[in-house]
């Protein structure tokens, strides 16, 4: 983004990322619908499966991703004001906050697997592990993108154009949006 066009109607970030985001949301939408339909067809199995999950960990993950998204949004604000060092700092804080999600997810996977649950246990666990791990991979990819953005911002790489910061942030917010649907679907609605 050129700083001189602040205030005009404009699409933040690169056009390609928005096409990619819509494609990603389409895939996740299909997975959510498959989960919902399977739940409706296997009410008891899903209730038993959901009872083995850890709602507190799901809540911690949601708070972690929302807060990380907030910090990354702050970094875009600082970048738009030309404060690139501060922008990089907030991206790093966002990454650190998201690492809570990674640790919590590992603990949850480990505790479920220790109890003998895995992808082959039944359709609930197949979908639970598949959908959450697919999202987990997106979080990892988002973190890699944010590391690249933070490093470039620290070196003053976005002095005349912050499109790169906005692009990375938009992808990160999409990852957050997906978890906002996943959390209640898997942990809350029983």
């Amino acid at each position: 983004m050129n700083k001189s066009v602040v205030g005009q109607k404009r699409l933040p970030g690169d056009l390609a990322i928005w096409i990619f985001i819509l494609a990603e949301l389409t895939v996740f939408a299909a997975l959510f619908i498959v989960f919902s339909v399977s739940k409706s067809l296997n009410v008891e199995m899903f209730a038993e499966g959901q009872a083995t999950l850890h709602p507190l960990m799901g809540l911690i993950n949601t708070l972690s991703l929302i807060t990380s998204s907030f910090f990354v949004a702050k970094s875009v604000l600082f970048a738009s004001q030309g404060q690139l060092a501060k922008s990089a700092q907030w991206v790093w804080i966002g990454i650190a906050t998201a690492s809570i999600y990674i640790v919590t997810k590992f603990i949850e996977y480990q505790s479920l697997m220790a109890l003998g649950y895995n992808l082959r246990t039944n359709i609930f666990y197949t979908l639970y592990f598949f959908i959450t791990f697919f999202h987990f991979m997106h979080v990892l990819m988002g973190i890699v993108i944010l590391i690249v953005v933070a490093n470039k911002a620290r070196k003053g790489g976005y002095e005349s154009d912050i499109t790169g910061v906005e692009t990375g942030a938009s992808y990160w917010h999409m990852v957050d949006m997906v978890w906002v649907v996943l959390f209640p679907l898997i942990y809350v609605i029983k």
Partner: peptide
């Protein structure tokens, strides 16, 4: 998600 779209993603002015 509407809040994330409008504020965090800054699509309110898109």
């Amino acid at each position: 998600n509407y809040q994330i779209i409008d504020v965090f993603m800054e699509l309110k002015n898109a």
